[in-house]
Simulated assay, not measured.
Amino acid sequence: MAMESLGEMLKQLPNGNNAVQQAEKLMSGLLADPLVDRLRAKYPELDDATIKLNLNRVYQYTKEYRNCTNCPGLDRCPNDYEGHYTLLSCETVNGIVQMSDRKKSCKKLLTRQSEDLIRSRVRSFYVDERALSQGYSADEIVSKDMERMKAVGQVLNYISKTQEHGLQREGLYLAGSFGTGKTFLMCYMLHELAKAGYTGAIVYMPDFVEDLKSLMHEQGKLKEMVDLMKETDLLIFDDVGAENLNPWVRDHVLGAILNYRMNRKPTFYTSNYGLDALEKHFSFTNKDGDELHKGQRLMDRIRPYVETVFVTGHNKRGTS
């Protein structure tokens, strides 16, 4: 809702002498406003005549200042421009005092813009968006289950290392049973490193693989998705090993993404499997030597490029 201007207020006053008196009272009150006193202290050259010439500016300044002092929240901002307030300044040009105004973004708007920018750096595929914005803090994960302290420490160390030294070549492989917070830890890492300017994507593997099968004949959409996963700074495959994999997805999609990223950008994984069990999953069956070889080949693009993090502890699902 736009702020009422001084002119609009004056229009609402009754006609005749009473209106003049009320208008003069309004202007006298404005001249005596403590905020105007502060303005005069900052700009000693500011006289009554200049204030009267700029009454609308001064009124808007005092009104918006008090709106901000009693801020009802960004979504209910009563100022003319949401998340902005008026600043006044004076300068003397050829002996004449001139007043000018400008809009300044408030802290709440700047915080929202910063959060929006951080969120824009992170993409999720088939992962509940709430996982990226809700959950425990890293401290809470440790305090709620001390068994996880080592895993949390490894992730926090990884975040610090990247913040200090730049994008790492190695990623992390979070192995642990269902519901121990692996996905949250990775979302926490994405959010913290997005603050440092890094882009990231998290992909829920079971749904991703099913969707890929339907995209086999939509090459444009498939290429766009694969290219994003190749190029993003931080890529997380969530719940890897739970997907119903087929040779085409394994060799031509996952293989292509990992082949591109190795030695370039770090890739991360969460899984209920350890690395050896994941290799068996990728090999499908030991009866077929070729499949075994291709499973090993994919693991050659994972195993050397990750630090394993064992996430132990109690199942936290449904108790957060």
Rank of each mutant, 00 (worst) to 15 (best):
L10D: 04
K11I: 11
Q12A: 15
Q12F: 08
L13M: 12
L13V: 05
P14Y: 06
N15K: 14
N15Y: 13
G16V: 11
N17W: 14
N18S: 11
N18A: 15
N18Q: 13
A19M: 10
V20R: 11
A23H: 05
E24Q: 15
E24P: 01
E24S: 13
E24G: 09
K25H: 12
L26A: 10
L26Q: 07
M27K: 13
M27Q: 12
M27W: 06
S28P: 02
G29F: 10
L30E: 04
A32V: 00
D33E: 07
D33A: 10
D33W: 03
L35E: 06
V36R: 04
V36C: 01
D37I: 08
D37K: 14
D37P: 00
R38K: 15
R38P: 01
L39N: 05
L39P: 02
A41M: 12
K42V: 04
K42W: 04
K42P: 02
K42E: 14
Y43E: 04
Y43T: 05
E45R: 03
D47A: 11
D47R: 11
D47C: 03
D47Q: 11
D48A: 11
D48R: 11
D48Q: 13
D48M: 08
A49K: 14
A49C: 08
A49F: 11
T50G: 04
K52W: 03
L53Y: 08
N54Y: 07
N54I: 03
N56L: 00
R57M: 13
R57W: 09
Y59W: 12
Y59R: 02
Q60V: 07
Y61P: 02
Y61D: 01
Y61T: 01
T62F: 02
T62M: 01
E64V: 01
R66L: 05
N67Q: 08
C68K: 02
T69V: 10
T69Q: 15
